[in-house]
Amino acid sequence: MNSSQLFGITTLCYLLSSAFYIGLLIFKNRKIGTIGLILAIIGVIAQTVALGLRWVESYKLGIGHAPLTNMYESLVFFAWCTTLFYIFLEIKFKARVVGAFVMPFTVAAMAYASFAKGINQQISPLIPALQSNWLIAHVLTCFIGYGAFAVAGGLGLMYLLKKSAVNKGMTDGALTGSLPELKIIDDLTHKTIVFGFMWLSAGIITGAVWANEAWGTYWSWDPKETWSIITWFVYASTLHARFTRGWSGSRIAWLAIIGFVSVFFTYFGVNFLLSGLHSYGSS
C-alpha cells in the first residue's frame, strides 16, 4: 500500500465520521457519536502512517524531505492537525457533538487536496529556498495553530446556532438541543483560541527566522506575512476583549469565526488573489 491509497482511506474515514457526527446532532444517539469518534481516530491513524510513508517515499526518490512543502502536503497536514486537535478536545472535554462542526472542515481539506485542479500531488524535489529545517518548524507550528483556529471557528458557529435556538425558545427536542451548554462552548472556544494563538505566534516567529536565514530579511511585509500578522492582530484583540473588557458569548463566537476567515485568507486567498514570496504554496 502506498501513501496516496492511505490518504484515500483517511478521506473516507473523515467523510463517514462527519456523517456520523451530523447523525449524532440529529438523532442524539450516543452510539452514533462513538462511531464518529472511532472513525476519526482510525482516519487519523491511517493519515499518520500515510504521512510517514510519504516521507519515506521521498527518500526512496532520492529527494528526501518532510511532507510539508507544497499546497497538497500542507492541506493534508492541516486536516491531520485539525482532526488530532479535535480528538484531543473531545476526549478531554467530552464535547462530542462539536465533531459535526469540525470534521467537515477536514473532509473539505482532504477532498480539495485530492481533487482540485492545479494541486500537484507528486512528491517533488525542493528548490534551494525551501531546503531548510526552519521550513519544517514553520509549517508545523503554523498548521497546529490553523488546526486549532479551525476548531475554534466551528465552535463559534455552534455557539451562534445554539444561541439563536435558545433565543427562539426552542426546547431540547430541536436540532440544537444536543449541543453543549452555551457556557461550555464559550469556554472551549476561548481555550482553543489561546492554544492556537500560542502556535500562530510561534509560526510567525519561525517564519521570520527562516526568512532571515534564506533572504536576509526577517520581515518584508509580503502579502502572506502581512495577512498572518493581521490574523494575529484579530486574535490578540479577541483575547484582550475577553480578558480586559469581559467580552464573551456571541461576540467571541463572531470573533472566532472572523479569525478563521482571516486564517483561511492567509492560507488560500493570498495565493490566489495576491502575489508575493510564498508562491510555493500555489502549486
Partner: peptide
Amino acid sequence: VKLALFLLFILAATSILGTI
C-alpha cells in the same frame, strides 16, 4: 485597553491595504 483594541483593529485594517 479600549485604545489598544482600537489600534489593533486599525493596524489590521490598514495592513490589508498594503496587500491589495
